[in-house]
Amino acid sequence: MMTNVGIIGCGMMGKVHSIAYGGLQNITVRAVASLSREQAEECARITSSRTSTIEEILADDEIEIVSICTPTDTHRDLVVEAARNKKHVFCEKPISRTLSDALEMVEVCRENGVLLGVNHVVRFFDAYTEAKRLIEEDAIGEVVMARLYRGGVFPRHGWNNWFDEFSRSGGVLLDLSIHDFDFLRTLMGEVESITARSVKTTPSHPSRNRDHAIAVLRFANGSLAHVEGSWAEPDTAPSKFTTSFEFVGREGMITYDSDEDFTMRVQTVSREFPSFSKSTPASDPYRLHISKFIEAIREGRKVPVDGDEAIEALKISLAANRSAESGRPVKLLEVV
């Protein structure tokens, strides 16, 4: 059974989606649309499709799924219109810039009988899935603390420099660290409160947005996590983007650093789970997530990361921004 797809937004993430769809069987990208003619033509070439307009994609009855790869503040309008045109939607993260927009997106998709998936893709990266598997198998005992880092150079690739506008991107805590907030929820449960600080540190570009932040999350089970996100790495940095994590349990710890040959290390006192180090494979997490999203549509079941889950991650980011602005801890219950 062939499934037809339309891609809206052909910047960096639109290109990533184009490549991911190209490796899937029984999937045809029928059309792509972008404000940039050059970027649209590149994605059309990658997918062997045609350039089109947003309106034409949404009106095309043969297109069943729409990928939304546009700036965060445009997600609400595009997702709502796609749902009203009876398209299933695979939307880039964050789900939206505001909670009210996200709630409306979920409700409109539900009313129109279409599925909404949000690309919290870190859940599908090999190192993170392996760490989650080991923790769920009790390899290091109960996790009591965690430390995660995600950062790189400032994302200048954004259309009209939209990452630099806080009102559009939400800054580093909402656009970038939300990846780690979402993943932590899958491991450590619900967040109770968050304390955050953010600063502007990059001298190499005229940023108005705060580009480096830390957040300390307190979970309902009493555990803690320290999350650091940065767009402030210098342009001369050897790695333009790096990630790392450390999970500390009562019987061991798991560490990973993408700068160290993607090596994961497990140290444990358990006889069932001896300590080891290994490199994690480099599969395509975007293709894996998209394929599982499409499988869920075909089989009529819940998508891997739906709008409700994306809203919970958004709430953490919004609470982090509120804490960074106010200088006080913020409870998740305050984000309504």
Rank of each mutant, 00 (worst) to 15 (best):
D60T: 00
D60F: 10
E62L: 12
E62H: 08
I63G: 11
E64T: 00
V66S: 05
V66H: 03
S67T: 01
I68C: 08
C69V: 06
T70P: 03
P71F: 02
P71N: 06
D73T: 11
D73K: 05
T74Y: 02
H75V: 12
R76M: 11
R76Q: 12
D77T: 15
V79L: 01
V80C: 14
V80F: 06
A82H: 01
A82F: 04
A83I: 07
R84H: 08
R84I: 11
R84P: 10
K86F: 13
K87E: 08
H88D: 14
H88G: 12
V89S: 00
C91H: 01
C91N: 10
K93N: 03
K93I: 07
P94N: 05
P94S: 07
P94Q: 06
I95W: 04
R97A: 11
T98D: 05
T98L: 01
L99D: 02
S100I: 13
S100L: 11
D101K: 04
D101T: 10
A102E: 04
A102T: 09
E104S: 07
E104L: 07
E104R: 09
E104V: 11
V106D: 06
V106M: 09
E107N: 04
V108K: 05
V108F: 05
V108C: 06
V108W: 10
V108S: 04
C109W: 04
C109I: 04
C109K: 00
E111M: 06
E111S: 05
N112Y: 07
G113S: 08
V114Y: 00
L115A: 07
G117M: 08
V118L: 03
N119A: 12
N119K: 01
R123Y: 13
R123T: 09
F125A: 04
D126F: 12
A127N: 09
T129D: 13
K132T: 03
K132D: 07
R133P: 07
R133M: 10
R133T: 04
R133E: 13
E137M: 13
A139W: 04
I140Q: 03
I140P: 04
I140H: 03
G141R: 05
G141D: 11
E142P: 11
E142G: 14
V143H: 01
V144R: 06
M145S: 15
M145Q: 15
M145P: 11
M145G: 15
A146P: 05
L148Q: 13
L148G: 10
Y149V: 14
Y149D: 11
R150Q: 14
G151W: 01
G152E: 07
G152Y: 08
V153D: 06
V153S: 10
V153W: 13
P155E: 12
P155I: 13
G158L: 12
G158V: 13
G158T: 15
G158K: 05
W159I: 15
N161Q: 12
N161T: 14
N161I: 14
F163I: 13
F163W: 13
F166E: 14
F166V: 15
F166D: 14
S167N: 09
G170V: 11
L173K: 03
L173E: 02
L174T: 09
L174C: 11
D175Y: 14
L176E: 03
S177E: 02
S177V: 14
S177P: 03
I178P: 00
I178W: 01
I178Q: 01
H179M: 00
D180A: 08
F181K: 10
D182C: 09
L184H: 11
